[in-house]
């Protein structure tokens, strides 16, 4: 049984600086095929604060700015963030598995036995001294949100109607319409809700049209999650208010 000092669940924005800090003796298990999906694929375009960032977060912010993905006033071209984070993961050391899921985490005498399923190899069990789960779990308290990318030639005033709110992206015609949806809704169910809203609220959006949908559900949390349950530490990346807060959170957390 291969041993890692730390197993991270989720190649998330928060997990990235932890993986950098831990270096090679770290396995990250990511169910999707991208990094930072909880922000990028979820189209969470909340503005970020890049003042007083610790080194890893500051370097990420510098790269985002250098590529025109982050503006000086903190607005993001959120779709491009995942590519940058993938590039960061490729260089950070440690082992990454994508398209993989942790199916069982069992506390043992000196740590954990973590069983991971990957479509190519099936089940593999690893031992670890520590497990940190950076993903969202059903037992957590949050409001799911679904994002719809809009493109429009003219300015749209951001609004918040309770169930629906508009976020501004980095570019002049880039907006994300966010819908607060019921717990347990799938992406297709959320898309149907969004489509019905679009049909009945055309006058709010003028000439704006939907370009894309979030392929990952977003979440609104009251506070960032940092808790231990059955020995596993939960540091939920999506529970942070924005991308750079999550990265900063992962960099500053006491391990």
């Amino acid at each position: 049984m291969k041993h890692y000092h730390t197993i991270l669940i989720g190649a998330t924005a928060l997990a990235y600086p932890i993986a950098v800090r831990l270096g090679g003796d770290c396995l990250t298990v990511e169910p999707g095929f991208s990094a930072g999906a909880e922000f990028s694929d979820a189209m969470r375009a909340e503005p970020v604060d890049t003042r007083a960032l610790p080194p890893i977060a500051a370097a990420l912010a510098a790269e985002l700015k250098g590529r025109g993905i982050l503006s000086e006033d903190g607005r993001l071209h959120i779709l491009a963030v995942g590519g940058v984070l993938c590039g960061c993961w490729a260089k950070c050391g440690g082992t990454l598995l994508m398209g993989a899921r942790a199916t069982e985490i069992v506390q043992t005498g000196d740590g954990f036995a973590v069983t991971v399923f990957h479509p190519q190899t099936g089940f593999t069990t690893y031992s670890a001294a520590r497990v940190i789960d950076t993903t969202v779990r059903d037992f957590m308290d949050y409001q799911p949100t679904f994002g719809l990318l809009l493109a429009r030639d003219e300015w749209l005033t951001p609004f918040d109607d309770g169930d629906v709110y508009l976020q501004r992206g980095l570019f002049a015609d880039e907006f994300v319409l966010r819908f607060r949806v019921p717990r347990g809704a799938t992406i297709p169910e959320a898309q149907a809700i969004a489509d019905r809203w679009l049909e009945t609220h055309r006058e709010r959006l003028g000439s704006a049209q939907a370009a894309g949908i979030a392929l990952y559900m977003g979440q609104e949390f009251r506070l960032p999650v940092d808790m231990v349950r059955d020995g596993v530490r939960y540091l939920t990346s999506a529970s942070h208010p924005d991308l750079m807060s999550a990265v900063k959170g992962g960099e500053l957390v006491c391990l």
């Binding site: 590529r67 025109g68 071209h77 779709l79 995942g82 590519g83 570019f171 894309g212």
Partner: peptide, 10 residues
Amino acid sequence: YTDRTRLYAV
């Protein structure tokens, strides 16, 4: 990225 080269989907 610029407004002409930005992404619409990944």
